[in-house]
Design a binder for these strands. Structure first.
Lengths: 98, 98
DNA sequence: TAATTACATTAGAAAGTTCTAATATAGTTA
DNA sequence: TAACTATATTAGAACTTTCTAATGTAATTA
């Protein structure tokens, strides 16, 4: 597989509202799946599937501890990347107001 | 529509190999559609459809001049965003080599 | 060792995306 | 104004993604 395909896979992994929500939580702290399950309106199974997509795209890493599995963002650049997207949107929105 | 949805739309727009190729070209210069059509192995119609997706996600802007339509990247932060993704991949790949 | 807990996997229906081929449109030139 | 050129749009078949419901698995506790 070469760069272009990895790149597409990263953006595909980011292109879902629940996965973005999960990533934004994982930006702040390492969290276990049960903590992610708590306040989401998605099923346990569904969250688990989304976490797998994030892991396959190598955006997160996992660590097992007893019955729990903890996830965290693998590379802090991801946080900056998401922040840039937010800034672009905010700029667009503010220009629409004029 | 609120922020989360705009964000998803940006990443969806980025999540396709041809669209990434187009964007990388538009990072450097403003180009007309005929120039994009030249060395791509995709049809005129298909490129036009992808350009529309990029425009709807507000990643590019267009300008008409006679029969030609010129596209360019709307916000330079997009270039930095794509560069961050590349860096993340390169780091992952270099760690795999060890 | 049986039951429980936390998480992952699978199957498959529904929805979304992507391409090709055909057609439409708007500006230009003869 | 007719033909041409550059680009956009549409329809629909093939493929991919997403969810729910059911089931599987590994670690823990009774």
């Amino acid at each position: 597989m070469h760069l272009a395909q990895y790149e597409v896979n990263i953006f595909k992994a980011l292109a879902h509202p629940l996965r973005l929500t999960i990533l934004k939580k994982l930006c702040k702290d390492e969290l276990c799946v049960c903590e992610l399950n708590e306040d989401e309106m998605f099923s346990q199974s569904n969250i688990s599937q989304h976490l797998r997509i994030l892991k396959d795209a190598e955006l997160v890493v996992q660590r097992k501890e007893g019955l729990n599995v903890y996830y965290k963002v693998k590379d802090q650049r991801l946080i900056e990347l998401i922040r840039l997207a937010d800034e672009m949107i905010k700029k667009n929105l503010s220009e629409m107001d004029l």
